[in-house]
Amino acid sequence: DCRPAFILAFEKMANLATKTGLTKEIKLKIETPLIHLSKAKIIKTGIKLGVDYALTLSCYDPDEKGRSCGRCDSCLHRIKGFKEAGICDPTPYYL
């Protein structure tokens, strides 16, 4: 989940439920530098940084060969992001 409210809640939980958080030695902070970028902008940034997207997986329900379904919410966001970025999606889809 990448919603800001979820990230803040998770950060609060981590600071309440870990030894580090309880002893206040270090306050845990979750950094989310990409949270306000579109999927296309994230993909373009990754390309500039040398990310090999053929080695990445976004699918919630990949098959036994590791291929993406092409139908789940995560796959649909990925497909749309690559299309909007004008970059060929190297993801193998099984549907």
Results as ranks from 00 to 15, higher is better:
residue 2 C to M: 14
residue 48 K to P: 03
residue 37 L to D: 10
residue 92 P to K: 13
residue 61 D to M: 13
residue 3 R to P: 00
residue 50 G to T: 06
residue 9 A to E: 09
residue 40 A to N: 00
residue 26 I to H: 11
residue 72 C to F: 02
residue 50 G to H: 04
residue 32 T to V: 11
residue 62 P to I: 04
residue 30 I to Y: 08
residue 36 H to A: 11
residue 67 R to C: 06
residue 13 M to A: 13
residue 38 S to R: 02
residue 89 D to R: 04
residue 81 G to M: 03
residue 17 A to D: 09
residue 73 D to W: 15
residue 20 T to E: 11
residue 93 Y to N: 05
residue 32 T to I: 04
residue 79 I to L: 11
residue 49 L to C: 10
residue 2 C to V: 14
residue 50 G to M: 04
residue 2 C to F: 15
residue 50 G to P: 02
residue 21 G to P: 00
residue 41 K to F: 02
residue 51 V to G: 04
residue 57 L to R: 08
residue 16 L to G: 08
residue 71 R to E: 15
residue 25 E to P: 00
residue 26 I to M: 09
residue 52 D to H: 07
residue 47 I to G: 06
residue 57 L to Y: 04
residue 65 K to Y: 14
residue 52 D to Q: 09
residue 80 K to I: 03
residue 4 P to N: 10
residue 70 G to R: 01
residue 32 T to W: 03
residue 79 I to F: 06
residue 84 E to R: 00
residue 58 S to E: 03
residue 9 A to C: 14
residue 17 A to K: 09
residue 94 Y to D: 05
residue 8 L to A: 13
residue 40 A to M: 02
residue 80 K to N: 11
residue 61 D to T: 11
residue 40 A to F: 00
residue 79 I to S: 02
residue 30 I to Q: 08
residue 94 Y to N: 08
residue 86 G to A: 12
residue 90 P to K: 06
residue 35 I to F: 06
residue 38 S to A: 10
residue 30 I to T: 07
residue 76 L to H: 12
residue 28 L to T: 03
residue 5 A to Y: 01
residue 72 C to H: 01
residue 95 L to Q: 13
residue 50 G to C: 06
residue 49 L to P: 01
residue 16 L to S: 10
residue 54 A to E: 13
residue 2 C to L: 15
residue 66 G to N: 14
residue 23 T to G: 08
residue 31 E to Q: 07
residue 40 A to D: 01
residue 70 G to V: 03
residue 54 A to C: 09
residue 19 K to I: 09
residue 11 E to P: 01
residue 66 G to D: 13
